[in-house]
């Protein structure tokens, strides 16, 4: 079901990725290609290592084996200076928003501009207001993060992530815990930003409907491996048993309803452990 792409089409290339926490394999030989200028969704159940994957792509974690290339650069072979230069071209939207709580909305969005550019204050002001306009929160520039709802905080974080006009944005569970309106806004924003600015988007999510609605390509991961990949339609129509259970949200299937346990009778009538 996976499509072959030429290397120049691929912004993020992951090959033979292995990552362990203690003796537990989070990734055990994962290959992923993220096409340039498209929305790629990485889906899988909770605890399958989706957030870890983003941290590996961003160089915050180091794999035990395998390579991750972003725009042709091997992330884990870069010096700190080179890695930081690469990160300036990558935005990341954290699940919690990760806004700096002692700074206002305006200052949060201005932060990367102040850090990495020598733009004049008036230019920074214009850029910040434009970024906030893009996420519909220009009117909230003077608020503090504590005064924002969860959805608004993520939109401000999104404005901050696009402040430096990055080549790609990684979204960590952008829809989790959002009300339907906020979710709809975020879905639309991610797609619109991707198309308008030709940004490459990597969306990590277990919200099937929302992720499928915006993704051009989906990778389904579980138990440290890529189970399947393809367009949302391909997965819906031709996905395997596991993928069908995940997409349709079936309580039982290849992923059993019951956590592995001894026979019920043995537990009920046997001796206490």
């Amino acid at each position: 079901m996976s499509r072959k792409r030429s290397p120049s089409d691929t912004l993020v290339r992951i090959r033979g990725l292995k990552f362990y926490r203690g003796s537990r394999a989070i990734f055990d030989g994962v290959d992923i290609d993220v096409p340039r200028g498209r929305v790629t969704a990485i889906m899988g159940p909770s605890g399958s290592g989706k957030t870890t994957l983003l941290k590996l792509i961003g160089g915050q974690l180091t794999p035990d084996a395998g390579t991750i290339e972003v725009d042709g650069l091997n992330v884990h072979k870069l010096s700190t200076r080179e890695l930081y230069r690469l990160r300036m071209r990558m935005g990341m939207l954290f699940q919690s928003g990760a806004l700096l709580t002692d700074l206002s909305v305006f200052e949060n969005v201005a932060y990367p501009l102040r850090e990495h550019t020598r733009l004049s204050p008036s230019m920074i002001r214009k850029l910040v207001l434009m970024k906030l306009e893009a996420v519909g929160l220009r009117g909230a520039w003077q608020l503090m993060p504590s005064e924002l709802s969860g959805g608004m905080a993520r939109r401000v974080a999104l404005a901050r992530a696009i402040a430096l006009d990055p080549m790609m944005i990684m979204y960590d569970e952008p829809f989790t815990g959002q009300d339907p309106i906020s979710m709809g806004v975020l879905v639309q924003l991610i797609r619109r930003l991707n198309d308008a600015a030709r940004i490459t988007s990597v969306v990590v999510s277990h919200d099937v409907a929302e992720a499928s609605a915006i993704a051009d390509l989906i990778y389904v991961i579980s138990n440290g491996k890529v189970i399947e990949s393809g367009s949302p339609q391909q997965l819906r129509e031709h996905g395997g048993e596991w993928t069908q259970q995940f997409i349709r949200g079936l309580p039982d299937g290849p992923v059993p309803f019951h956590y592995p346990a001894p026979e019920l009778e043995a537990d009920l009538f046997g001796e206490l452990p």
Binding site: K55, G58, Q60, Y84, R85, R87, M88, M90, G91, M92, F94, Q95, S96, A98, L99, L100, T101, Y111, P112, E115, H116, A157, R160
Partner: peptide, 14 residues
């Protein structure tokens, strides 16, 4: 805990 430090790292700020 609120990922502010990770956020700084990803903004290329040490």
């Amino acid at each position: 805990a609120t990922e502010q430090l990770s956020g700084l790292e990803m903004m290329a700020v040490n």
